[in-house]
Amino acid sequence: MKNVFRAEIYILRHDGLLWLVPVLYCAVGIYAGFYDHAVMDIYKGVELFSLTEILNLFFSFSVVLLTGYAIGGDFSRHTIRNVLSAGTDKKSYYYTRLLVQVLLTGALFAGTGLIHVVCHSLWPQGDADIRIAFLWQKLAIYMAMVLLQLLAQVSVVNAVCYFVRNQLVAIVSGIGIVYLEVIIRQTAEMNRMTSVQALADFLPTNVIRDMFAYAVYDRVFTGRFFLYGLSAVLIIAVSSAAGYVRFCYAGD
């Protein structure tokens, strides 16, 4: 498992195109860090939560694109076939690959979040006097919840890669899934399909889009907020299991 892990990190480090992604994420962090958000005149510190509100679809799209590119590329380049021919266990390969992608996503999001927070802290804006209580604790939980939603999307696209086994199709499917999540909720809202809307509210893309309201109305330490985390964990578990079964038990 250690060897596969090191090999995958090596592949990602030496892929020239992938180095554009951290640069893009840094630019996004700086842009969001200097964004003049209206809430800065209401509560002091709320702007630190605004990263996902300013660029909510960017994170969803970029994560699925990156995952589809990285993991789907292993199928298109036949890397998986070579690794498995060397005697690597399928189970350890599957989970190591997923772990590498999870760490990459986590590192990118953490880096962007840090840049965003540093920019706002060093160049404070807004005229608010009221400060949020337990700001840093709430911010940590809020960012962890957003990351969990992104990891749910990584897990889903990872599973999709093992079904489609083609880099381009994996990327298109990932983008399509994100798009579908938004459209399903919009359709359910407009047609007053309450049960479908209730389910769609827990889809990762919709959760990320709605999260900022929890920060603005100080509802981070509430049951529903933690339910979002639970739904993300469930999605990760189900999609990982589906991808694992497909990869390990479906023949070639």
Binding site: G176, I183, I184, Q186, T187, M190, N191
Partner: peptide, 15 residues
């Protein structure tokens, strides 16, 4: 997928 989009669009525009 486009057929599904067409049906979804029809459902959304109904309102």
């Amino acid at each position: 997928v486009f057929f599904c989009f067409a049906v979804l669009a029809g459902a959304v525009w109904k309102q």
